[in-house]
């Protein structure tokens, strides 16, 4: 474990594990509520929030958190009340926010290296303060999901029946949008605006491919998120690759493995059956032995 000898690597590993756990837990509801594109839209809109922070001289993480939450709520409000499809609304808001970000960045004087670290992420540059922020936000978010777990599951499965039973579905929907926005913002410094939404989808989708129950799906999701963070960081160190991209590639590899061997799709069973037929000992006879063939009758 030579690479852990460096303090910045220790911080990066801790941040990666925390982000892996947080994103994987949130990804369960992102996938079940079919909000994957919301995650993509909100993460890209973070550029607008970061640019506002840089221009106003406030902490870009804080300004991005506020901005992303506003964008997420606006997506929710317009798609729920405006009778527009959610993907259309996201398409409008995310491109507008990015355009705003680019326009504002051009107004900021001089070169802005901080902006590039947010755009592509740099897990090796995380500070103790970033880890504390990640841990604090993660604790609040996971507490929210634990407290409302049964209600969130009901709303994801059948919103109308949940509303009829008196479940505050609107509150939970906007709560989930806020959770997605905050998770994206605290992960942006690690993975970057472009890749932050990946960990909000891939871990739970890996769990979905492997498990037929949400409990198993959550466990596999967390295992996928954490192992992708650890393996990605380790590989990025040895192969000298960008850490954020390597983490996402590790998570995607786990997903494709799960997809290929998914019991849902029966591919593994088909592969096993194919292997069995290639083994001459187990090969079923294409034709019954001659003696067993019925005698042909002529009419």
């Amino acid at each position: 474990m030579e690479f852990l000898a460096y303090e910045f690597m220790q911080r990066a590993l801790l941040a990666g594990v925390l982000a892996g756990v947080l994103c994987s837990c949130v990804s369960l509801f992102v996938v079940l509520q079919r909000m994957a594109f919301v995650g993509v839209g909100v993460s890209h809109s973070a550029l607008g929030g970061i640019a506002i922070g840089v221009l106003l001289g406030v902490n870009p993480v804080f300004s991005a958190a506020v901005f992303c939450t506003v964008v997420a709520w606006a997506i929710g409000l317009v798609s729920k009340r405006g009778r527009l499809h959610e993907d259309t609304v996201i398409g409008v808001f995310f491109s507008t926010s990015m355009a705003l970000g680019i326009a504002l960045i051009s107004l900021a004087p001089g070169y802005q290296p901080e902006l590039f670290s947010f755009l592509f992420g740099n897990i090796l540059a995380v500070t103790a303060g970033d880890i504390l922020l990640l841990a604090a936000a993660g604790t609040v978010i996971i507490l929210f999901m634990v407290l409302f777990f049964k209600e969130l599951l009901f709303v994801c499965f059948d919103e109308e029946s949940a509303r009829a039973a008196g479940i505050p579905a609107t509150f939970l929907y906007f709560g989930l949008l806020t959770v997605v926005a905050v998770t994206v913002v605290v992960s942006v410094k690690l993975l970057g605006i472009v890749l932050a939404s990946a960990l909000l989808v891939i871990p739970a989708m890996t769990g979905y491919e492997v498990c037929r129950n949400f409990r198993g799906m959550l466990v596999v999701s967390v295992c996928c998120g954490v192992s992708a963070a650890v393996a990605g960081l380790w590989l990025s160190y040895f192969l000298n690759l960008p850490s954020g991209a390597t983490i996402v590639l590790c998570a995607a590899s786990l997903f494709f493995l799960a997809f290929l061997l998914s019991p849902r799709r029966g591919r593994f069973q088909r592969i096993a059956a194919l292997a069995k037929t290639r083994n001459p000992a187990d090969k079923p006879e294409a034709f019954p032995p001659e003696s067993a063939q019925p005698t042909q009758t002529t009419s």
Partner: peptide, 18 residues
């Protein structure tokens, strides 16, 4: 969603949420 990862028992348990 026919692939929603809940069992028959889990769906009935949703009735207890209210």
């Amino acid at each position: 969603d026919q692939g929603f990862p809940v069992s028959a028992h889990d769906v009935v348990m949703m009735g207890r949420v209210g």
